[in-house]
């Protein structure tokens, strides 16, 4: 359930914290395990993380359900995290989100039929000088226009 590769990566986080405080690594551990399990967490994977870090399952579950970046429902291979907060809104994010929904034929929260993409409205991503913007994976895309969205989204595989 947790690959050896992910275990190694989790171990690299655990050593950052004082002995006995390995549960400080739970946030990254959940992220790594999510990434290798269809980008979502299940009660089983959460428990596996808890067991690996020697912490109560409920403590890991609390973290997994508190923070925004963990998924508990099916998502696409790529999640487009579209900022809709004030600076982006003032620069037309709502219109562009509608454009993207129409282009993909899904509403925010839904996954495209091929399982490739889902769109999520998110709160401020801290790149307001580049509004409107969205995030895919680790990457920020700023100063978006309909043309730019076409180019980025058409390139997703």
């Amino acid at each position: 359930m947790i690959s050896n590769k992910a275990k190694k990566q989790i171990d690299a986080w655990v050593v950052k914290y004082p002995e006995g405080h390995q549960s400080s690594a739970v946030m990254e551990a959940l992220k790594l395990v999510q990434a290798e399990n269809d980008n979502r967490l299940t009660p089983d994977t959460i428990q596996a993380v808890a067991d690996y870090l020697d912490m109560p399952g409920i403590a890991a579950a609390e973290v997994a359900t508190f923070y925004e970046n963990y998924n508990h429902k099916p998502v696409g291979k790529h999640t487009i995290r579209f900022c809709h907060n004030i600076s982006c809104m003032l620069n037309g994010s709502d219109e562009l989100i509608t454009y993207l929904e129409n282009k993909l034929g899904v509403k925010t929260g839904e996954v495209t039929k091929d399982g490739l993409i889902n769109v999520k409205k998110v709160e401020c991503l801290g790149a307001c000088v580049g509004a409107p913007m969205f995030q895919i994976g680790d990457q920020y895309y700023e100063n978006l226009t309909a043309d730019k969205i076409d180019e980025i989204v058409d390139g997703l595989k």
């Binding site: 405080h21 549960s23 739970v26 946030m27 912490m55 609390e62």
Partner: peptide, 23 residues
């Protein structure tokens, strides 16, 4: 240390809780 998406963790004591691996 990396967060996981919660504005409240910018509040300093929430940030400490988060660093400890909690909500």
């Amino acid at each position: 240390h990396l967060g996981a998406g919660a504005y409240i963790c910018g509040e300093e004591t929430a940030l400490l809780e988060s660093l400890e691996g909690k909500k």
